[in-house]
Design a protein around this nucleic acid. Structure first.
Lengths: 351, 351
DNA sequence: CGCTATTTGAGGTACGCCCCTCATGTCAAC
DNA sequence: GTTGACATGAGGGGCGTACCTCAAATAGCG
């Protein structure tokens, strides 16, 4: 089983395949790269030799010989949202490293909640200049149609963070937000002793991911915790100020709130309110996405838990999937599954 | 910023560096690969050109030209422990994929709790046949000395899962177990309402990781939750039967146990006991490592939470670190940090 | 100044694969 | 029997880097 470059038993090459299969190098190449003009019997012969010798195409040599870059584009909403910022940062950072691997990453920031901008961005893509796209955008028909056109032009598309329904894309990279909401609910229920009133702060109606979280949260409470009452805030629109302003009257209306679930991107407003006027007893607060400010809120005890998804993992996974689609190489499903991370004060990763 | 194989503005190559720096290819090569025989002024000139052109070594071409495999070895304890099995499985599985990248993975199973076997395994390594080792073993002086000898022979070593103190290794791949214990304690405290008695089931005294978890668990309770009393079980030796047998008398001795923390590898015994005779009210149970049986216990409600570390991530990280050490390439610390995962029933990953 | 030791240049080969061209072979339909 | 479509063989160039050899230039030294 030991193997070394200077010893015999080297990894078989295409030449070995040709020899064993009794065909020429050209034919092996045609088979390996799924080029036309080979009889199926011959294809079989080559595949058999491949299996026999345990041939694995050398990724380095292949990528070198292919003499091309894989140019990937990330379409992200242009917002000050910390989580999106983290995504941008990851795209930029990993783009640098991926240069080593003949992959380039670009990002295109479009106005948020603006399907038309995404449609335009997708339709403006030139096949040949862009080999794959990752899109974080609203799940509207216009967007889905644009995705469809893009894929029809041979450019693979993955949905990032927010899924596009009806499998409009080649892949979805992100968490199941219904499950994320259920997870928050399970944690909340455990922390508040399975009874009492909890407040859900919702985000924009346009964001499918936020709606799903809320739905999951409420569903689990209904299913498993009849002694917990869920009340929902008016739509927060992901606007910190708006949220900060409407909280006092909510607390007045429901003085017995034992838990708060911030399902959307309004963490900043929530933090601001709670850090100035803490209700007594302090409610259990669960929010989404580990960012600089939510991290601080967790450290200082304003937040009790954070449900999160790793931005680095999201970006890496999107890249791997787009790359695999281009190379027609296999995919490791387990590695591509984005975890729903739970962070408490203690297990928060450093940095 | 767009870049494509068929367009101008190709990635700069070593030839471009040589031209810009006004030196020969050979000199560029000497600098890039840190070979001796170049004046420092010349080194500077080359580095300047590299920076100017934004040269990045083409990983594919480099690995192809280096014409060698990276042979890595994983030394794991031979035990039926499910977590270790998961590690073995990951090593085997990823070994296949890594063949594409000129990396081979082997595993060497040694008797558990047997430092001498690990020492022998390390000392038997032949430099040239093995280019890096990942070790999951006890933190004893004999092992550390063997690691030291191995590294002295030029073979990088990473500690896997259990750290070896005094930075005996090049890297440690795993979680901070004190922090993991604290995390379990924080979760436990929240779930049991911050008061009452909890039982800690410990493992072997030889396993530093288990001791640290228990230490962290007790420390956090002492620091933050004075109303929680921690009682510790006798040593479980990671033996399911032993644990299963001693539980009844523990429950008799402490009928008011509200929570159980299984810090070690004795989950099977705990599950067996709890699934036959459930104390009332059912205590909150937190255990370690997501495995088939702990997963089932979580689903069925026997366990309430699992603290875990991802075996796939551990193996991938160990490989990346050993590879980076061999290639002298940079390391992305944030990617290599192993998370302390918290799984509840709801956010348990599928598969 | 001449001497040696060090530094640099020039050039080549190899890695494993992709992709191209051109010639040759085979078999069917006409 | 000719034609054309298809299947295969033969061969070569190229990707960007590593690593080797040998000669030439230069620096450092007394």
């Amino acid at each position: 089983m030991y193997r070394h470059g200077l010893t015999p038993d080297p990894k078989p090459t295409v030449n070995d395949i040709a020899r064993v299969a009794g065909v020429s190098l050209a034919t092996v190449d045609r088979v390996l790269n799924a080029r036309p003009g080979v009889r199926s019997v011959t294809i079989e012969r080559v595949n058999k030799a491949v299996a026999e010798l345990g041939f694995v195409r050398d990724a380095a040599a292949a990528s070198l010989a292919r003499r091309r870059f894989l140019n990937l584009l990330f379409i992200l909403p242009k917002t000050s949202n910390e989580f999106v910022k983290a995504l941008e940062h990851q795209v930029a950072e990993q783009g640098i490293k991926l240069l080593h691997d003949r992959v380039t990453l670009d990002q295109h920031l479009v106005p948020p909640f603006d399907p038309a901008a995404i449609v335009k961005a997708l339709d403006d893509l030139q096949a040949g200049l862009v080999d794959g796209v990752a899109v974080f955008g609203p799940d509207t028909d216009a967007v889905k149609e644009a995705v469809h056109r893009t894929r029809a032009r041979g450019i693979p598309v993955v949905a990032l963070v927010a899924d596009l329904s009806d499998s409009a894309c080649d892949f979805f990279v992100g968490i199941n937000n219904v499950t994320a909401g259920r997870t928050a609910a399970e944690l909340m229920a455990g922390f508040i002793g399975r009874r009492g009133r909890v407040l859900v702060i919702t985000g924009s109606r346009l964001a499918r991911d936020h709606l799903e979280r809320r739905k999951g949260f409420e569903a689990l409470m209904t299913e498993c915790h009849p002694d917990i009452q869920v009340v929902a805030s008016p739509e927060g629109r992901d606007d910190p100020d708006l949220i900060c302003k409407m909280l006092p009257e909510l607390f007045e209306q429901y003085p017995d709130i034992r838990g708060i679930y911030s399902s959307a991107a309004g963490n900043l407003g929530l933090i601001e309110h709670l850090s100035t006027s803490t209700p007594c007893p302090k409610p259990i607060v669960i929010a989404h996405e580990l960012t600089p400010s939510s991290r601080e809120a967790l450290t200082s005890g304003i937040f009790d838990a954070i449900i999160s998804q790793d931005a680095g993992h999201l970006v890496r996974s999107a890249v791997r999937l787009l790359k695999a689609t281009s190379d027609q190489s296999p995919i490791d499903q387990t590695q591509e599954q984005i975890r729903i991370d739970i962070y408490l004060k203690e297990n928060m990763p450093s940095l």
